[in-house]
Amino acid sequence: MSELLVDKRGHAAWLTLNRPERLNALNTGLKAELVAAAVDVTLDPEVWVVVLRGAGGRAFSVGGDLKDMHARGRAATPMIEVERNVYEAVLEIPKPTVAVVDGYALGGGCELAMACDLRVASDDAVFGMPESHRGMGANFGSVVLPRLIPRAVAMEMLYFGDRVPADRARELGLVNRVWPKAELDERVEEWVAELLTRAPLTLRRYKEMAGKGWEMPVPAHLRLNAGPNPYLSEDRAEGAAAFAEKRPPRWQGR
């Protein structure tokens, strides 16, 4: 069975890390499948939203598979390997991405969640960057985490490697929603369904503008003009017509 399950339903692609017996640890094969899936959903015009989750209910992902690293005789050095970096591939999907964290999101698993635009969690979810306990580097996390939450808190998480429960993660702004574990699947389905009622070109525009201009000066950022142009789209005309006619819009993504 594939280590990554891909389920396209309507305009959403649901990607499920499928190594529950290893708490969805990221081995070489799973990372390769994730990169390939990131390319596929990027190129598929029928996919408007991407959801990333873990199988089994115990973990989103506990990060890099240390047994896999040991068997290969070395750990991968980020950004200089032949293979594309999996976190970068997910980060650069030009459509809204949602990480659904049920259980542990540790190390590379936490980084994978950070690569998504939105993060929702079960009330028993736990986040952490334990690389300082393992002699690893958390290359992606050390760059992105201080941009997502207050810098001093991010550095404490990185330095000490302590675990952060879901409620605290939400307080810090690392997580958007926390729901009871028994209700997680239903709540996520509803949240994604609501997101899909928003204009897809507008969402893509937001992602491109916010991401590509992350640290640009405001005057330059305002002139970036990244992503699809919703102002001249058929969807913009449809949105105005739907408002005037008091009906839900019928988006086409063009």
Rank of each mutant, 00 (worst) to 15 (best):
A220Y: 05
L4N: 12
S142A: 15
G64A: 14
R134D: 02
V39R: 11
W251S: 08
G141V: 08
V47C: 01
P146L: 12
V51M: 00
R58T: 11
K207R: 10
G213K: 06
R74V: 15
A59H: 01
A237W: 05
L17G: 03
R19V: 13
L66M: 12
L224V: 11
A36T: 05
P217K: 11
E21Y: 11
E156W: 08
N24W: 05
E194T: 06
A12H: 00
R134E: 13
L148P: 02
L196T: 04
R53F: 01
A36M: 02
R204T: 08
G57C: 11
T28Y: 15
P45R: 06
D123N: 15
D102I: 04
M129A: 15
P78M: 10
W251A: 07
R236I: 08
F60P: 03
M79C: 03
K246R: 15
E88H: 05
I149A: 03
M155T: 07
P130I: 12
L145R: 05
A220K: 13
V175N: 03
M157A: 08
V86P: 04
G253L: 07
I80L: 11
V100Y: 00
L91T: 10
A32D: 09
R72W: 09
K31A: 08
V164E: 03
V120W: 06
W214R: 13
G227W: 12
P230N: 03
L15R: 09
A32C: 05
L148S: 06
N139Y: 15
T42Y: 01
A138L: 12
A152P: 01
L52M: 03
A75R: 14
Y231V: 14
W214G: 03
M129F: 15
A76G: 06
D117V: 10
P228Y: 11
V98E: 01
G103S: 08
V188K: 02
A55H: 11
G63W: 01
F140Q: 07
C116L: 04
P96N: 09
L222R: 09
D65Q: 12
P78F: 03
R72S: 13
M157Y: 01
K212W: 13
L195P: 01
E194D: 13
N139Q: 13
A36G: 00
T197L: 10
P165A: 08
A193P: 04
A59D: 05
L43S: 08
K212F: 09
Y231W: 15
G128C: 06
H11S: 14
P45E: 06
C110W: 02
E88Q: 10
N85H: 11
I93R: 02
F243S: 03
D167A: 14
V143R: 15
L172S: 01
E215D: 15
V47S: 00
A37M: 04
E156T: 13
R168H: 09
A152W: 12
G227F: 12
P200W: 01
R134M: 14
V47L: 00
G239F: 11
S2L: 09
P219A: 10
A76W: 09
A237C: 06
R205V: 01
A210K: 07
G173V: 07
C116N: 04
P78Y: 04
L222M: 09
L106S: 02
L203K: 10
R72P: 05
T28S: 13
D65M: 06
Y231S: 10
R198L: 14
K207N: 06
L5D: 14
W14G: 02
V218D: 06
A169G: 14
H221A: 14
V101N: 07
L66S: 08
D68H: 10
S142F: 07
L112K: 03
V98M: 04
F140E: 11
